[in-house]
Amino acid sequence: MFRHTSLRFWALGLIAAAAVLRALTAEYFGVEMVAEIAILAILVIALDMVAGFGGMVSLCHGALMGAGAYAYAMLTVKVGLAPSAAFAGAIAITGAASWLIGAVCGRSHGIYFIMATLAFGQMGYSLVFEQPVFGGDDGVSGVPRIDLSLIGLDLNDPRTFAFACLFVLGLVYWFATHVLQAGLGRTLTGIMHNEQRMRALGVNVWRIKADMFGLSGMIAAAAGALAAQHVMFVSPGLLNWTVSGEALVVVILGGLGTIIGPVIGAIAFVMLKHEVSAHTDYWHLVVGLILIAVVMSRANGIFGWLEQRLSRARPSSARDVIAHQVRKDLAAQGALEDA
């Protein structure tokens, strides 16, 4: 279950202060990076909600974000909806699709769940890639940003847009932590720890999983709609499974099951990527090695390591729980089928 420890409060405050300071003072590209980090952070919060608190390790969150981006782009550019209505529409459409995926995949566990979500993600990728209505490989250009001139804001200004992204990130953080602390989140974590027991208690397991997956998809869609506005352009690459893999890596890098950790992971990842790619064309190699090292280390990412160092009682790591649960599942499966 999600708890707001004092360390998490401090980290949150520090990050918020640093982000605002940077958005105010940085040069053009620095400000763009703030927006990029905020959007990635929203996506990884969505992923951490299901992976860190429900054991649903999804490899389709990149595709969900891409679906949100495409829905927003199609609704504004092709349908001609007002951007704010399109934003809501994108969240609703993607949320519904995501709920369905959660309902279907929720029956499988461990590696099967990973593979099933990967399959659905790639299905979405193929759909936008091959259907001419989505613009194929060339994508959709001329995606507008939301018009906030009524309250005196011009989102076409990079700094204002970065602040808008930070604002949405704040909202998403508030929303995610509340959902996780409410009954839905607590039940889900109960399922992660012991699905059979929750089922015996009369919990409608697939429904809980689907609901959380749907909410997570809505948040991913918000990230996508922001990403579409950020570059004012969408292309199928957004939905590729490697984006999902990257998002998962960011969650691990920051600390699975901590919500604030993945945000830190997003900061670290974007910084690292820009820093390394400024020096070498082979930045994939360097970033890949660093990520392997992080995943292979015993610590639960940057934030998990911090928590472990700073707090006396070691919080139970969601990673251990998932690893343990999967072994149990496989053993149970074997036992059932042997019988």
């Binding site: 390790v57 990973i114 998962l248 890596v249 691990i252 995943v295 292979m296 998932i322 690893a323």
Partner: peptide, 13 residues
């Protein structure tokens, strides 16, 4: 013994 997620991610890297 690290669980499928860590394995998927290491091989992804």
């Amino acid at each position: 013994r690290a669980g499928p997620m860590a394995q998927v991610l290491v091989t992804f890297g």
